[in-house]
Design a protein around this nucleic acid. Structure first.
Lengths: 230, 230
DNA sequence: TTATTCTTGATAGTAAAACTATCATTTGTT
DNA sequence: AACAAATGATAGTTTTACTATCAAGAATAA
């Protein structure tokens, strides 16, 4: 007996729902691990098939190609962040406090949730940081956006944007700030580790505390309300 | 007779300097056009060779592969932005005014400079917006960074960061803000056109005025000095 | 229980991508 | 005129990104 969390995603993202079968779950689980290991460019379905002891053809029965698999994983991440936000900001009155919690989630992604055993969330977080934006930086953005492939990102931005407006209803850029907090969280975790001259924060191991602090400073300074929560 | 601007780039980025020959310049010129047209994923040297009436083998004599060509183009852009900043902020006393000029450059990239006829800067700007970050989001970042492939971005960040510190010497995140202004400029031009729910700005044609305005608001609010220039 | 269907595995094959090698021209230099 | 350097032409290799076919096993329905 255990609680099982199922993350619902646009069913045009897959040919067969990977969450429904053990093979599908292994594609997700080891797909994340392998992309993290060798990078999206070196990754392909043949290598993944070998890793999970299956065949290329079988993986193609679940996902059209690796690009769609990436969008699936990224969507999964967006939806999971959304879920974490809902869980952890529930019953919290202060919008400032809620935004602080959101920023913590964006920076740390959070430790593994045992309720989902076919996704290693720490590795997925690293994958999103390194490869995430490739999902929507292609010539197919417009058509894929129309199919709703990026709905989860849009909704996440909406959700954070609304909380920003709660703090300051006159703030002119709620959605831009929301998406920027997300992108900045990922970028500066990456920069700290690979291109340190592009940032001022430092990351020791997987402690993204400084990233969180910076995002808080940026967000609350921009929104223009002194953080009453402290 | 004409003035010719030569942009110096890390010579490990190419096997033969493309700026030195007509074939090299055509690789750059039409390479930019073709990547913009079909996207980096669909782009390859065979198609480029056909476009410029040359051969695959000849292009490989200039660049190791399309990834290195991308880094070359991105570096060219960084260096060119740097040059524009130097030109247009020269002799301007006020650091605030200089930052405003920089933000204008980042958002608009600027119209074509006839001094460089083998690079269409408007198209390059669009390419950077769509494909730029792929240059440093790979498994090879660390080794390529060590080879100095991203030096131009580091230096650009330094340059902007120093001006930010001139405005407010106590600002804690000069480099992070600098790189974020660059990334945000590109992201929100892209979002406005392809994923409008992720931003609040609108872009009509190639008028990035709203992006510029937003970046100014973000930058000066964060740096914490009222903009005396207005 | 058998029959049927659905899923996976095994194998093979194709077209394109990502190169490398070789040699013949052309062009530019001394 | 002689030489070197750059380019073109051609061909070949390995890997990627698929698609097709058929057989074996598992699940389900009659």
């Amino acid at each position: 007996m255990s609680i099982e969390i199922k993350i619902r995603l646009n069913n045009n993202l897959y040919l067969r729902d990977p969450q429904e079968t053990t093979l599908g779950q292994r594609i997700i689980k080891d797909g994340i691990i392998l992309i993290d290991e060798i990078g999206l460019e070196q990754f392909n379905f043949k290598k993944l098939a070998k890793k999970i002891g299956s065949t290329e053809a079988s993986i193609y029965r679940y996902f059209e190609n690796k690009h769609i698999l990436l969008i699936y994983l990224v969507s999964w991440y967006w939806e999971w962040i959304s879920y974490l936000i809902d869980m952890r900001t529930m019953n919290i009155e202060s919008a400032e406090k809620r935004l602080k919690i959101i920023i913590k989630i964006l920076a740390h992604a959070s430790k593994n949730d045992p309720a989902i055993n076919y996704v290693d969330q720490d590795i997925l977080h690293r994958l999103i940081i390194a490869e995430g934006t490739k999902a929507y930086h292609t010539k197919a953005v417009d058509s894929e956006n129309q199919k709703g492939f990026f709905l989860n990102y849009n909704q996440l931005t909406d959700k954070i944007g609304k909380i920003i407006l709660e703090i300051n209803p006159h703030f002119a850029y709620p959605n831009a700030l929301a998406s920027n907090l997300f992108e900045m969280a990922n970028n500066h975790c990456y920069f700290a580790q690979h291109l340190p001259r592009l940032t001022d924060v430092q990351v020791e191991g997987d402690n993204f505390g400084e990233v969180e602090k910076m995002l808080c400073y940026f967000a609350f300074t921009l929104i223009g309300k002194v953080n009453e929560a402290e």
